[in-house]
Simulated scan of single mutants.
Amino acid sequence: MNNPVVYKKRNYRPAITAISIILIGAIGILFGLPGVENFDAFDVTILPLINAILNSFTFIFLFSALIAILKRNITVHRRFIYAAFTTTFLFLITYVTYHFLAPSTSYGGTGWMAALYYFILISHVLLAAAIVPLALTSVARAWNMENERHKKIARWTMPIWLYVSLTGVLVYVMISPYY
Results as ranks from 00 to 15, higher is better:
residue 178 Y to A: 12
residue 101 L to W: 03
residue 42 F to V: 09
residue 96 V to F: 08
residue 71 K to C: 09
residue 3 N to M: 10
residue 82 Y to C: 14
residue 56 S to N: 04
residue 9 K to M: 14
residue 51 N to D: 10
residue 149 R to T: 13
residue 102 A to Y: 07
residue 13 R to H: 09
residue 20 S to L: 03
residue 118 Y to H: 11
residue 63 F to A: 05
residue 155 R to P: 02
residue 58 T to P: 01
residue 154 A to K: 01
residue 37 E to P: 10
residue 50 I to D: 04
residue 111 G to M: 14
residue 176 S to C: 08
residue 63 F to E: 02
residue 141 R to N: 14
residue 91 F to R: 01
residue 179 Y to Q: 15
residue 8 K to E: 10
residue 3 N to P: 02
residue 46 I to F: 13
residue 30 L to D: 04
residue 107 Y to L: 10
residue 128 A to D: 01
residue 134 L to Q: 07
residue 155 R to Q: 14
residue 61 F to M: 07
residue 84 A to C: 13
residue 88 T to S: 11
residue 88 T to F: 03
residue 148 E to Q: 15
residue 161 W to L: 04
residue 151 K to D: 09
residue 53 I to A: 04
residue 53 I to E: 01
residue 77 H to T: 06
residue 136 L to I: 09
residue 7 Y to W: 15
residue 51 N to G: 08
residue 143 W to M: 13
residue 155 R to A: 15
residue 115 A to D: 08
residue 15 A to M: 13
residue 45 T to S: 12
residue 5 V to Y: 09
residue 41 A to D: 12
residue 54 L to Y: 01
residue 81 I to E: 00
residue 46 I to N: 11
residue 90 L to C: 12
residue 121 L to C: 06
residue 71 K to L: 12
residue 144 N to F: 07
residue 104 S to K: 15
residue 102 A to W: 05
residue 75 T to I: 12
residue 105 T to K: 05
residue 73 N to I: 03
residue 95 Y to Q: 05
residue 65 A to W: 00
residue 55 N to R: 02
residue 12 Y to H: 05
residue 52 A to I: 08
residue 158 M to L: 15
residue 127 L to V: 05
residue 150 H to W: 06
residue 55 N to Q: 06
residue 133 P to Q: 04
residue 39 F to W: 13
residue 19 I to H: 01
residue 48 P to W: 00
residue 101 L to M: 06
residue 146 E to P: 01
residue 59 F to N: 00
residue 170 L to A: 15
residue 158 M to T: 13
residue 90 L to E: 07
residue 47 L to I: 05
residue 28 G to H: 14
residue 21 I to L: 11
residue 148 E to W: 11
residue 25 G to H: 09
residue 53 I to D: 00
residue 59 F to V: 02
residue 123 S to Y: 08
residue 10 R to I: 13
residue 90 L to I: 13
residue 73 N to R: 09
residue 121 L to I: 05
residue 136 L to C: 03
residue 41 A to G: 08
residue 159 P to H: 09
residue 34 P to G: 06
residue 148 E to I: 15
residue 129 A to V: 15
residue 1 M to G: 06
residue 105 T to D: 06
residue 126 L to R: 08
residue 153 I to H: 03
residue 118 Y to P: 02
residue 166 L to P: 00
residue 91 F to T: 00
residue 168 G to A: 09
residue 121 L to V: 05
residue 2 N to K: 11
residue 178 Y to Q: 14
residue 160 I to H: 03
residue 51 N to Y: 03
residue 8 K to Y: 08
residue 120 I to E: 03
residue 83 A to R: 04
residue 157 T to C: 04
residue 6 V to L: 13
residue 136 L to N: 00
residue 131 I to Y: 00
residue 31 F to G: 09
residue 140 A to R: 00
residue 94 T to R: 05
residue 123 S to I: 10
residue 7 Y to A: 13
residue 146 E to I: 13
residue 19 I to S: 01
residue 81 I to N: 00
residue 147 N to C: 10
residue 58 T to G: 08
residue 90 L to A: 14
residue 73 N to H: 12
residue 142 A to F: 08
residue 40 D to Q: 11
residue 87 T to V: 10
residue 17 T to I: 12
residue 12 Y to F: 13
residue 153 I to S: 02
residue 125 V to S: 06
residue 21 I to K: 07
residue 3 N to L: 11
residue 177 P to N: 11
residue 52 A to V: 09
residue 159 P to Y: 07
residue 99 H to W: 05
residue 166 L to V: 14
residue 11 N to W: 12
